[in-house]
């Protein structure tokens, strides 16, 4: 059951992105920014977390889930460390993802070359 929920909710979030891509002049880069910011603000209100509880990876794997994680992180940091958490919370919560992407991307650049199309 949780696989079906993840599939449907995750798929629907992607459809929203596809509609933005086809119907507006927004490029994929702009849609990524929009989704992360939207996820963060919805996460700040606590609404997105309800979707994560319902759909699991269906809500956390798409980029609004990345934004939601930033909102959760900033709240946790403020609870633990006070005002400085406003600055550190977001960065800390994306550290694992961005760090992994940086490391793997660097290694990939040393191993692979761009293929002609």
């Amino acid at each position: 059951m949780d696989y079906l929920k993840a599939f449907v909710v995750g798929g629907l979030i992607c459809v929203v992105g596809q509609i933005l891509l086809d119907k507006t002049r927004l490029t994929s880069a702009r849609i990524l920014v929009l989704f992360v910011v939207a996820g963060c603000l919805l996460g700040g209100l606590g609404w997105y977390e309800k979707l994560v509880e319902f759909a699991g990876a269906g809500a956390s794997v798409p980029l609004p889930g990345f934004g939601n994680a930033l909102a959760k992180g900033v709240k946790k940091e403020i609870d633990e460390n006070g005002f400085i958490g406003v600055l550190t919370g977001g960065f800390k919560s994306m550290a694992a993802g961005v760090g992994a992407a940086m490391l793997f991307s660097f290694l990939a650049s040393q191993i692979f070359s761009a293929k002609e199309k």
Partner: peptide, 18 residues
């Protein structure tokens, strides 16, 4: 040159775009 033009004006070759 397709590849030289893509990287100059558009996206990296391996970026998944439609």
């Amino acid at each position: 040159h397709f590849c030289a033009a893509e990287r100059t004006f558009r996206f990296p070759l391996e970026l998944g775009v439609q």
